[in-house]
């Protein structure tokens, strides 16, 4: 059975079709990348899959179960986790606390125990902290643990967000431009991290602008243009597809002409 399967998903804002009839599948251990020019609807698609937007049509199946439009926090408990294009960090908390927040589903318990600082509450909090420290080490942020999250560099925040998403031990991980704004070394590190996570059996859905990264690590590529799927296949196939070249290079050229 396919882990994540999206069928005919579509949404319109004020009459304009932002995403129209998009279908795709992701299996465990697979990295499926969604590419396309700016405004192609990639983030909108992510927001529908992760329950932030209610799609107008189509459905999202997680392990064969219809989870279309389910609240994000419920999807999280079913094994879906994500990061954001424009970072959603808890700026009012430390780096460590941000990572611990990712363990919410594992560390939550009776409120009364939390209010009274009962042993059960302390045990849950300790376990989450240990897990969070291990994850921070994995993304290379262990030394920044006690800093305020707001004080980190952009690249570090990207990694912190990935660490927080991994804390959920997701079955499906949605990464929205994880390498955007990162330098070559940081991109390399994120690249490796994604590959490792996929190798551990997580299904990964990726939106990314860095074509080299996409071509290097994807097992399958889906191309969106103006809200519609125009091509899909293995990275090498897609990069030769004339429709893709037209859509992509067309907009690239336009971008160059503008600049």
């Amino acid at each position: 059975m396919t882990l994540l399967s999206i069928e005919g998903l579509g949404i319109a804002f004020g009459g304009i079709k932002a995403v129209h009839d998009v279908s795709l599948k992701v299996d465990p251990g697979e990295i499926v990348s969604i590419i396309g020019p700016n405004g192609a609807g990639k983030t909108t698609l992510f927001n529908m899959i992760s329950g932030i937007y209610q799609p107008d049509s189509g459905c999202v199946l997680l392990e064969g179960e219809d989870v279309t439009g389910m609240a994000p926090f419920r999807l999280a408990s079913r094994g879906m986790s994500r990061t954001f294009q424009n970072l959603q960090i808890f700026q009012n908390m430390t780096v460590l606390e941000n990572a611990i927040a990712g363990f919410h589903l594992q560390e939550r318990g009776a409120v009364l125990a939390d209010l009274l600082h009962l042993p059960s509450s302390r045990r849950r909090a300790r376990a989450a902290e240990a897990g969070a420290r291990a994850l921070l080490a994995r993304v290379g942020l262990e030394r920044a643990a006690d800093r305020e999250a707001g004080s980190l560099s952009y690249g570090s925040l990207k990694r912190l967000e990935i660490a927080r998403a991994l804390a959920l031990r997701p079955k499906v991980l949605l990464l929205d431009e994880p390498a955007a704004g990162c330098n070559a070394v940081e991109t390399e590190e994120i690249d490796q991290l994604i590959a490792e996570v996929a190798a551990s059996g997580v299904a990964i859905l990726l939106v990314e602008h860095d074509m080299k990264l996409v071509m290097r690590i994807s097992s399958h590529v889906v191309v969106l243009d103006q809200g519609e799927k125009i091509a899909e296949g293995a990275p090498a196939e897609v990069s030769r597809d004339p429709a893709v070249i037209a859509a992509y290079l067309g907009s690239e050229e336009a971008a160059h002409a503008d600049g």
Partner: peptide, 19 residues
């Protein structure tokens, strides 16, 4: 854990939902 979740949703409701 509860207090952390409260402060998290204060920081970003969207991110709080996704965890």
């Amino acid at each position: 854990p509860t207090g952390r979740a409260l402060r998290a949703l204060h920081g970003s409701e969207i991110a709080a939902q996704t965890v």
